[in-house]
Every structure is written in structure tokens, then in C-alpha cells.
């Protein structure tokens, strides 16, 4: 926001809107900035998941099968690529932006750690979280069992009569699966 008002009109140098296509470095910069749009789209998807859950088990399955549509899987794959590009640019960028004053000099965290150590550490953290996530992805029971005392979905599922669920391609055998899950 403007802190001071000037009586003079500020001079704005005219810039061609396609400036970022002229040089590879600029294009990479704009692609990095552009990843935020896909992140925003994914956040809205997750908000949709919450809103769908408010309508009960039916809405939950419908939204899950919407996310399972090939177009949505392809879109999410694109989001994944954008997020990984963000990650690869974020870790080298952050220590440069984050200034830390050491012994009265603005040497910066980047210089302090000679850069590479912080980057290696953060990539190790990224790898750890990713590997852990993949393990939990294939064996979600691991985490589900730990968190089951707080379980909400079970109560949402139980509140819905499985036989009243719509029968479509994606809804095939849903009632049987729900009953299997509750019975477990």
C-alpha cells in the first residue's frame, strides 16, 4: 500500500507484456511464479472435499470419484510437477531472501552455512517426508489405525443407509464395500 502521497505523477517505464518470453531466465522466473495458480487450484479442490463431506457419505464418494476422473488425475499430475518445480527453486531461493545478522554483519544464512549444507538438509527432509508419504500411501492402515480414536468418516458412513446410494459405474458395489469397512 502507498505510504506517502506524492503530488507528482510517478514515471512508469512502458514494458512490453511479452518481456518474459524473450529470455530463458525470465521464462523460468515467470513459470516459478505461475506455479502459485496451480497451488491455488489444488487448495480449492481440497476445500471442495470438505464441502462435499458436509453433505454426508454420498457427497464424499461422489467427490472422490470426481477426483478419480482421468482428466482430474492428469490435472493433479500437472499440479504435482508445478509443486516439485516450486520445491526445486524454493530451497536455493529462501536462504538468499532470509537475512540473518551474525556478528553485526548482514552475512545472511546462505553465506553462514556456505549454502550447500542448508540445501542438502532441506532436500533430506523433503526426501524423508516423500518416502514416508509413499509408505503411508500404500499402507494407509498404518496411520488410520493410529488416528482411529478421532475417526469421523466412520460416523458419517454409519449415518447413511448404504442401500440408498446411487448405482452408477463408480458407485458399483459401494454399499457392500462400506458394509465390509464398517464390519472390520
Amino acid at each position: 500500500m502507498d505510504l506517502e502521497k506524492s503530488t507528482r505523477q510517478p514515471y512508469v517505464r512502458p514494458v512490453d507484456s511479452t518481456w518474459w518470453t524473450k529470455k530463458g531466465f525470465y521464462t523460468a522466473y515467470m513459470l516459478r511464479e505461475g506455479t502459485c495458480l496451480l497451488v491455488l487450484a489444488f487448495v480449492l479442490e481440497m476445500l471442495g472435499f470438505y464441502i462435499a463431506a458436509l453433505t454426508g457419505a454420498n457427497g464424499l464418494w461422489k467427490f472422490a470419484s470426481f477426483l478419480g476422473h482421468p482428466v482430474m488425475i492428469a490435472f493433479n499430475a500437472l499440479v504435482l510437477v508445478a509443486v516439485l518445480y516450486h520445491a526445486f527453486t524454493w530451497f536455493p531461493l529462501m536462504p538468499k531472501a532470509l537475512r540473518v545478522i551474525v556478528k553485526d554483519t548482514k552475512s545472511g544464512l546462505y553465506k553462514l552455512l556456505d549454502g550447500k549444507y542448508l540445501v542438502i538438509l532441506l532436500f533430506a527432509a523433503l526426501l524423508g517426508v516423500t518416502v514416508g508419504g509413499i509408505v503411508l500411501f500404500y499402507y494407509p492402515e498404518l496411520l488410520g489405525r493410529l488416528l482411529s480414536p478421532f475417526g469421523l468418516v466412520k460416523s458419517i458412513v454409519e449415518s447413511q443407509d448404504p442401500s440408498s446410494m446411487p448405482n452408477g459405474d463408480t458407485m458399483k458395489d459401494v454399499s457392500k464395500l462400506v458394509q465390509d469397512y464398517i464390519g472390520k
Partner: peptide, 27 residues
């Protein structure tokens, strides 16, 4: 976005392979 989101996206991409996965993710 850099650390947690890749895993969350991967989890949502595998959601509909089984109902149990959806319930677990939802839980």
C-alpha cells in the same frame, strides 16, 4: 508447498482406487 504438498497430491491421485483408501484419507 515444497515439503508437504507433493505427498498430499499423490494421496489424492490414488483416492478412488479403493473405497478403503478414500475412507482412510478422509479419516
Amino acid at each position: 508447498v515444497a515439503i508437504a504438498l507433493p505427498v498430499i497430491i499423490l494421496a489424492t491421485m490414488g483416492l478412488t482406487h479403493s473405497l478403503t483408501d478414500t475412507v482412510m484419507f478422509g479419516e
